[in-house]
Design a protein around this nucleic acid. Structure first.
Lengths: 335, 335
DNA sequence: TGGTCAAATGATAGCGCTGTCATTCTGTTT
DNA sequence: AAACAGAATGACAGCGCTATCATTTGACCA
């Protein structure tokens, strides 16, 4: 393996000049630059990036912490992250945490051991031990939260206005004449769930409707959870005429249960989701949902992370992206 | 940031001993080990992994090259890769190539610049320039192909017997009485497509059926491609009574087109997919498909890659995983 | 021609760690 | 007690590169 010294010898210049010619071409004369480039090509020089990383203390990589890679929504966010990172010459290290705080911490340690320059966290937790979050630390820890909000206000986030989104969807259903609206929520402690639930309650309240706790079922965002949740809601004495699921996959599962029970969507019961996955408009009937700008999430998160890493996070610490209510055939007038 | 020297000083030993105490605890006495560990904790020592990587020439990371992250099948394979890698103390760098050979090469260069120890390639191409594939190179380049096969026989692969799988599905349809079976294939040059098509033809031939080129449509594995492909097939003078899509997403799209045309699945036309995504059994009707052991793919690929990196790839260069035909409601007797 | 200044280049230290080899310590055997 | 083996530790070079500072070169003008 040829190194920088080989090239220097070949080109008849110093190693420093080789380094400069290759890293900041504008500070060497055109003649030497050419000489160095030719020499490099001739000896098949490939810079040892690890040496560079070691010396320059920049790994040029970011860590993406994601609870579940095979969740299509996250997959899309990640692909946005990766694209944005790549365009800045950065690599993405994948941290599939399976929702475990231990695994998260484990991965986050990559930051402390100089293996990554920053972290984008897709779940609601601050991934480092709190001792590391020491506010006495003058340098901000380069971590950005994406899609989820965190209670810890100091952590920069890019997120949706989940309350507004929840409210918008419930309003949509109320306008269609529904008054008993079931919800299949995510983990109750998640800020995301809390936000959407708040929107749910506000919308009910503003329309003079009572909140009924029995209409709230908990799920884990899986197809199966939607199936089970819908069954639970259908079994109620006063079953809802509409079900709002906190992600599309649960909505798919819910629709399955409803059809199995011999009911029609939306004839007998309306179903709405959240995320608006590409598949949702292919559902039968096509699913009403709240579109999240998944790829943009990745984009903005990377942008914020870079500002943070550069030490000049300008503007909002908490940025909000726009959602869009996409009304399709799965929601209709209350029967 | 405290370094190894700080710890050495604190513990009253040499830096070499600190390194040993932390990296290979069994070669130092229990007393010093304890001393070092305490000192390390006291000064908050975090080893600089980049220095270690640089020095030891092992990045402890592998690159996963994937054409499309948001394809659920790939997402699952990747999550298998990441899990297997992590269990060996390795990180996964994500290379979303969007199918572009240039981007692939770009990423693959991480190998040549010592930024990664090995590559798992999820598409059919050899990612490096062919000059790098020089067989005169005594050290095998640590690249494993996963899910796709490659024509280049020298590249280790883990794959399905696509021909057998294609044949099995066609046989299933023939047994149901279908004789005009449409297919929506992937990129025609892909070995994966070639294999499944070969199975298609063999099954036809063995059952005394004619191959009709008009029944073959090309797609790009997207929902939309399935939709378009099915429309094309339905518009044929002699439309097929069954459609076999080379992945599940295209099957979802196809089912949509069929229903839109006022036909029923499987009453008027049967539909089958490939991959058996978790969602497929939630489809209405539930989709008949070929199950691929997606997570296992990742597992085995990592295992092979490690053997390769250790320089002792034992056993088969081309490993095969078992598929399973999952017959569900979307395929039925020919009308 | 000589002086001045900026541009270009060279020389060199050292990033934090590990691998190698030399040295010291420990316990056992004669 | 001497001899010795093996375990434990120390000393130190150096991985390939970049950052820093020193030096040289070249352009320009008085």
């Amino acid at each position: 393996m040829s190194n920088i010294r080989t090239v220097a010898k070949k080109a008849g210049v110093s190693v420093a000049t080789v380094s400069r010619a290759l890293q900041k071409p504008d500070v060497v004369s055109e003649k030497t630059r050419k000489k160095v480039q030719d020499a490099a090509k001739e000896v098949g020089y490939r810079p040892n990036m690890m040496a560079k990383v070691f010396r320059s203390k920049k790994t040029h990589s970011v860590l993406a912490l994601v609870p579940d890679m095979s969740n299509p929504f996250f997959a899309r966010v990640i692909s946005g992250i990766q694209k944005a990172a790549k365009s800045r010459g950065y690599n993405v290290i994948l941290g599939n945490t399976l929702g475990s705080a231990d695994i998260e911490r484990d991965f986050a340690r990559l930051l402390q051991t100089s293996q990554t320059d920053g972290i984008i966290q897709l779940s609601a937790r601050y991934p480092l031990e709190s001792s590391e979050n020491d506010s006495s630390n003058p340098v901000p820890v380069p971590i950005v939260n994406c899609c989820e909000c965190v209670t810890d206000d100091s952590m920069p986030t890019v997120q949706l206005d989940n309350q507004a989104a929840g409210k918008a969807m419930i309003n949509h259903l109320i306008q269609l004449g529904h008054s008993r609206i079931g919800v299949i929520i995510g983990p109750p402690e998640s800020p995301l769930t809390v936000g959407r639930m708040a929107g749910y309650k506000v919308a009910l309240h503003e329309n003079g409707l009572e909140f009924d706790e029995k209409l709230v079922t908990e799920g884990d965002y899986s197809l199966n959870a939607g199936e089970v949740g819908a069954k639970t809601l259908l079994a109620l004495e006063e079953a809802p005429t509409a079900i709002f699921c906190f992600n599309d996959e649960m909505a798919y599962g819910a629709m399955r249960s409803i059809k199995e029970a011999g009911l029609r969507v939306p004839g007998d019961i309306s179903v709405a989701g959240f995320d608006d996955l590409p598949f949702s408009k292919y559902m039968e009937p096509a699913l009403t949902s709240v579109r999240q700008p998944s790829v943009d999430f990745g984009d903005v998160a990377v942008e914020m992370l870079f500002e943070l890493m550069a030490g000049n996070l300008q503007g909002e610490r908490h940025r909000q992206l726009e959602f869009e209510l996409v009304a399709r055939a799965s929601t209709g007038r209350a029967s």
